[in-house]
Each structure stands twice: as C-alpha cells, then as structure tokens.
C-alpha cells in the first residue's frame, strides 16, 4: 500500500456552497459531526447559563468565577471522564462516588500513619483500578448487568470506608497541603489549582485514547453493536474489562483530587457523586445506550452543572436544593431530546 506522507492536502471542497451550509452538511453527515452537534448544544447551553448569570448578578462576570467552575469541580471532571468510557460501551458505573470516598479515607488514614505521600497516591490509584478491573471482569466473564455489579461495588467500597475509619480524618501531609494550597497564577489576577491542571490533562489523554487508538475505536464499536464488534474480530472482552478499570482509576484519581479540595478523608464524602458524573456525561451529549459521545462533552456537562450551582449560590435566596431540581429537569430534557434524535436516525 502506498501512503503519501506529504503535507496535509486541503480537504476536497465542494464548490458553490457557503461555509455555513457545508459545515452544517458535514455535521449532519459524519459521526463525529453528530457527536459534535450534541457537544455544541451543551456548549451553547453553558454560554447561555453563564451569560444569564452575568446579566443577572453583579460580579458573576469576573473571570475567576468562570475558573472556579473548574477549581470546584476538578474531581468531578475526572470522574465524568471515566464514566464516559463506561457509558460509551453501553455500561454504567455506580461505584465511582463510593470509590472517591474510599480513596479519601485510605489516603487520609495512611498519611496519618506516616506513609510517604507518593506511595499513598500509587496505592490509592492501584486500589481503584483493581476494583474497577474486578467489576469489569464480572460484567464480561459472568455476563452480569453492569448496574448490579457496580451497585455491589458501590456498597463494597462504601462499607470498606467505615471499616477503615468512621470519623473524618484530617489530612496534614505536606505534599497534599502544598498541592492544595499552591495555585497556578494566571494573568489578570486569576488562578487555577493543580487539581484543575491534572483534570484537564486527563481529559486530553482520554480524548486521544478514544479517538486515535484502536482501543478507543473498539469502545465506540462495542457501544454501537457489541455482537457485531465481536464478529468483526475486535477484542470485545478485553476492552469491556478495561473501561471499568479506567473508570476505577479515574474514580481513585478523582478521590485524590477531592481530598486535595477538602483535605480530609471521610466515609460519608461524595455521596451521590457518581450520579452527578452520570448527569454530566448525559448532559454532555453522550448516549446512555453507548456508541456516541465525546469526552469534551462530559467536561462541558460538568461545567454546566457547576454553573447552575454558582447561579443558585449567587442568588442567595434560593435553597441549594434548587440545584438538584434544575439538574433533574435538564437531564430529563436532554434524555428526551436524545431519544427523539436517535429514533429519527434508526
């Protein structure tokens, strides 16, 4: 086969078409296009919500308010990335919130005992990955429902937290506090935390893996039609186990970032956080049936959730439960829209 390794040739242009129309045609035609479309919808929603906040509330337009969306939700971004892998295969991971709690408890209790921070970090990540791998193996080899397997994983992880320590353990380790308190200064008197940098790196790596590796394309293929993927000779089993391991790793990493954010380990941390992650993934345009969605969408989904939270806290008069109500309604709208669009497609 001859592959011309020359400079990228311009894409073939169809003459007589405006840029807008051909962009629209491209969106309608290509898969990445239809995923991109969902992500664009989420992006527009984010801008609208944020714009509304800027108009309605003084100070909402400060750049640091926007950056705080990332700062306050770095752990959720990482969780949502792992969840995206699982949901793209058509699965679900209910254990991630509990794994976040377990990670904070394991980290805090080991640091309290004087373990070295890097060792603790490695161990926490290993535990999360191993738990995810085990759940993936159960899903694939025993052909169990992901819902049930990860529900069991959730109870297991949450229970283990209590076994290790019931009361909250403060984290005083130098590396952890250092990472938590030092910030990356940005121009305009703004800043980001290191946790945000880590979360954004995770997003970038995940995007590369999903779109530019055979493993990533297999993830999408499984979500599209698992049986077909098998008959096409793809490594379905290995991939399915791997996405749960990835989600477990992301949960553990999310737990570490959360422990930086909150500087304690407690068995009651992050209750229901897996549901926030799922909500973010769905609002980010990923189909719960699998096979379609972008990891960038999940990032935007987290930011949408964060913006709603900021809006309600800026208002001051509203109960914080309105956050949940708004997210619930938004989720419903997104799922209905997805159902309508996919029905038209099939």
């Amino acid at each position: 086969m001859t592959v011309t390794d020359t400079a990228p040739a311009p894409a073939p242009q169809r003459p007589g078409r405006s840029a807008g129309r051909s962009a629209y045609a491209w969106l309608r035609r290509t898969d990445t296009g239809s995923s991109t479309f969902s992500v664009l919808v989420t992006a527009v929603l984010l801008v609208v919500l944020f714009g509304a906040g800027t108009v309605r509330y003084e100070n909402f337009g400060y750049p640091q308010v926007a950056l705080n969306l990332l700062v306050d939700n770095a752990h959720l971004i990482v969780l949502a990335v792992g969840m995206t892998f699982v949901i793209l295969t058509g699965g679900i991971d209910l254990s991630s919130g509990a794994v976040v709690a377990l990670s904070t408890v394991v980290a805090a209790s080991l640091l309290e005992k004087g373990w070295a921070a890097p060792l603790v970090i490695a161990l926490v990540l290993a535990i999360g990955t191993l738990l995810g791998w085990a759940m993936g193996a159960a899903v694939h080899h025993l052909q169990l429902q992901p819902f049930i397997v990860t529900l069991a994983g959730m109870f297991l992880a949450r229970g283990l937290c209590f076994v290790i320590s019931e009361p909250s353990i403060p984290i005083r380790d130098d590396l952890f506090t250092g990472l938590a308190q030092n910030v990356v200064e940005l121009p305009g008197n703004t800043y980001l935390t290191y946790a945000v940098v880590i979360a954004l790196v995770v997003v970038a790596v995940a995007a590369f893996v999903l779109h530019r590796t055979r493993f990533g394309r297999t993830v999408y293929a499984i979500g599209g039609n698992e049986q077909s993927a098998g008959l096409m000779g793809l490594a379905v089993g290995r991939t399915k186990v791997a996405v749960y391991a990835i989600s477990g790793f992301c949960s553990a990493l999310g737990g570490l970032l959360f422990s930086l954010y909150i500087l304690s380990g407690w068995s009651l941390h992050a209750i229901g956080m897996e549901l926030d992650a799922i909500a973010a993934v769905v609002i980010g345009g990923t189909l719960l049936t699998g096979g379609s969605g972008l990891v960038l969408g999940s990032l935007l989904g987290v930011l949408v959730l964060g913006t709603i939270q900021s809006l309600i806290s800026f208002d001051g008069g509203l109960s914080s439960w309105w956050t949940k109500i708004t997210i619930g309604l938004l989720l419903l709208v997104f799922v209905v829209v997805q159902r309508v669009t996919t029905r038209r497609r099939r």
Binding site: D31, R217, Y220, A221, G224, N225, Q227, G233, G291, S292
Partner: peptide, 15 residues
C-alpha cells in the same frame, strides 16, 4: 454486523 454509529471508513478498517 457492523456498527451503525461509526463512519463507513471506520467500519471498513475497524481493528
């Protein structure tokens, strides 16, 4: 037995 969510290209070269 192909994946309807992927492009024609991907379905041909997948794996």
């Amino acid at each position: 037995n192909l994946c309807p969510n992927l492009t024609v290209t991907e379905n041909i070269v997948l794996g």
